[in-house]
């Protein structure tokens, strides 16, 4: 067990704690906090993968902005009902777990098992720096970038319309 492996295991345990918390905590605020933990540790996992910029963007956009928005909405709606706790005996809970289990085992067996040994790919590790990503984003991916900016604009207009209109 090397230092890297220990670091990865600790991070992934935290991330999984967050993921479990999102699904099984009974108040929305706690779920949101669990999701923040998940997103934050996921950002650190991205660092381990060498994607510095994506990792910090993950923390800034997801953990910093999107989740604050979620918390804001939860509080403004005062949707703090505790009745939403998933019932273990419920039919859909059992069937969703069954289905998820089947898909999980199949993907694990046929996709992930073969990659368990895959390590040691040597190539330049500067691919995650802002310089590299910026260069590619504004040359090769300029069109998708523009389209996404249009999409964000549409999103802004749409959310303002939704918020303004009185039903």
């Amino acid at each position: 067990m090397t230092l890297n492996q220990i670091a990865f295991i600790v991070l992934s345990c935290l991330a999984l704690f967050g993921a479990v918390g999102v699904v099984f905590f009974n108040t929305p605020v706690r779920s949101a906090m669990a999701l923040v933990v998940n997103f934050f540790t996921l950002g650190l996992v991205y660092f381990m993968l060498g994607s510095e910029l994506i990792g910090i963007t993950q923390i800034m956009v997801y953990a910093g902005a999107i989740m604050v928005l979620f918390l804001f909405v939860i509080m403004i709606l005062k949707s703090t009902n505790d009745t939403d706790k998933p019932q273990l005996g419920e039919r859909r809970f059992i069937f969703s777990l069954l289905g998820a289990g089947v898909v999980f085992t199949m993907i694990y067996r046929y996709v992930i098992m073969p990659t368990m040994e895959r390590t040691n790919v040597q190539f330049t590790r500067t691919y995650g720096t802002p310089q590299e990503i910026g260069k590619t984003l504004f040359t090769q991916y300029a069109w998708p970038f523009e389209i996404v900016s249009m999409l964000l604009l549409v999103g802004i207009v749409g959310s303002i319309m939704l918020a303004k209109r009185r039903f």
Binding site: E52, L53, I56, I59, M60, G64, T129, Q131
Partner: peptide, 10 residues
């Protein structure tokens, strides 16, 4: 790190 300012913002 390469992302110093972004770290501060995040």
């Amino acid at each position: 790190v390469e992302i110093g300012i972004l770290y501060v913002l995040a």
